[in-house]
Design a binder for these strands. Sequence first.
DNA 1: GTCAGTTCCGACAACGTTGTCGTCAACGCT
DNA 2: AGCGTTGACGACAACGTTGTCGGAACTGAC
Lengths: 333, 333
Amino acid sequence: MRITMKDVAQRADVSIKTVSRVVNGEGEISEATSRRVQEVIDELGYRPNRMARGLVTQRTNSIGLVVPNINNPFYPEVAEAVMSTARVSQHHMLLCSHENNYQEQQAILDSLVAQGVDGIIIFPALHGVEPLIRFSKSFSPLVVVNHEVDHPGIGVVRADIVKGAARAVEYLVGKGHRQIGMIKAERSPANRRWREQGFKQALAAHQLDFRETALVAGDSAASDIDGGYAAARELLTRHPDITAIFCYNDLMAIGAVRACQDMSRRVPEDCAIVGFDDITMASIVRPALTTIRINKYELGAEAARQLLMLLDDDSREASHVVLEADLIIRESA
Amino acid sequence: MRITMKDVAQRADVSIKTVSRVVNGEGEISEATSRRVQEVIDELGYRPNRMARGLVTQRTNSIGLVVPNINNPFYPEVAEAVMSTARVSQHHMLLCSHENNYQEQQAILDSLVAQGVDGIIIFPALHGVEPLIRFSKSFSPLVVVNHEVDHPGIGVVRADIVKGAARAVEYLVGKGHRQIGMIKAERSPANRRWREQGFKQALAAHQLDFRETALVAGDSAASDIDGGYAAARELLTRHPDITAIFCYNDLMAIGAVRACQDMSRRVPEDCAIVGFDDITMASIVRPALTTIRINKYELGAEAARQLLMLLDDDSREASHVVLEADLIIRESA
DNA sequence: GTCAGTTCCGACAACGTTGTCGTCAACGCT
DNA sequence: AGCGTTGACGACAACGTTGTCGGAACTGAC
């Protein structure tokens, strides 16, 4: 049998409302009764029922985090950050993944709303942001991560991927490389083109040629690695003069390193490899990957902070936050 | 403004209860009204409020998953499995991590109960299971993963780690190894001794000596690797005749491989290394790790299945499920 | 002693659902 | 015609909280 405010009220010989006041620290109460009620609460082990509270306040103290794929080593770090940040203000996190499936994404959003979450943080699926803009009209607050979406009600937190990609090129050029290839991901929607864009711009700034190869990758770590392997082989076969490769992400970079090794090119002496993301694995493989770090923890923490602020004060404007993407120099370039 | 049953009822010119019947498919309703109400529901885009429903049914259609540390590559796979399994029966998953902190674990459990989750799946913190047994008296259903706990109300899903460890030894012995060391984790509570137990038993069966080294490891991937590195150096220095090492987990095994390389021992020719868990990284590092696989997806899926069954039918007995831990042969041994 | 102002507290109505029970018509049976 | 049975629905009270409002008991000032 659950213990309710009624039980506490009876035992402490006060009204239900008084118990409510004590629980919520509403003040208008004498020191004596407050203490007495508190004692009964402790004694009975009373805990407020969030559903009942939520029914009247329209708040559940829970937020939703929607990611593409929890198996991608990128997202657990983000999730941890969101969880920790939410926890300090007593919020729970519901985790969902949409597997880059648009239908699934919409179903999840609907379902989170029905569940009564107070706000949602989402890494959108590949199908553009129009559905999210529509969604934000019937639900707020909403924070979108690593996508650019210009809509007053929607908060944005993202890494400066264009600049990050440019940094990789600058570094390689500084090391003397002139023939630089890129392995990109074909599945990319608009935002994923950011790497390509930064890459091209930086090359152009140095009047360098543009060589790239696209790969169609699935969503598992293994397929990204295999894809990177195949793409690197193709790229190096088509353009044997290439001395450096910039990769869409670290997993593909790991595959590219393998390809080089199998083609008897030493990394980094004969072919430098730069990855992207700086997942944990990047520092563990040999040669350790030189890569562009996205601060995943900060990404999640910032998104959560923004969501919680919007929750606190709904007159607040949703803002856009852009995090730096820094170059991490290790062994592969 | 939220759309409620009342709105639907007015518009369809029926009572609230009739709408409720349609929504829940309760049957006792004519085909005609049912269709009419359904049309209004679609037209208005009505979605039931789970909090209100939860308040009266005492169910929220959400379950809690409590893990030690979401950053450990082991747990996201489990989480995904739980999520997918829960989804088919319309359940959400709340994810929490207790960082192996007992206080935190209790706080999380309390908080999940207040949130109104229907059931909880937990990887316990290091402090034994008594608190969980106490907890299970005031809350059910509860499924514990990778711990053995004998209490009627608590379901258990775990991998057969003892046998897994024994398999590793059998394999090494079969390969001709006679001097086999083990790197274990000092932080281990009772259940974590399973590896040690299997290791010792298998050695004894072959009348082999027992050499081991303990390491005190933190909770990050990096510290496990570093710990494995240091432990392997120590072990090989103390017992230079060792030709094979069995490691507590894959991360430590990766560290051990490094140590061998730095000590000019080739892996596997001069020193074979066997890991445990089969995390994704195990197949990516070079040499790829021979390891004991815990089927993480199955672990999560089975735990979720059991929880959902207990949810469905509370007269059901909680059961104990033990999954095989198979040997995966790759390059390191 | 009256009066306004404060402090502390309780009654009561929400919030949006589901469960229980009752009603009322239609139906089949004798 | 009378009688139970069934099917289709509605009225109403829960569920456990919070918000609104009002009232009793004090306080201090004249």
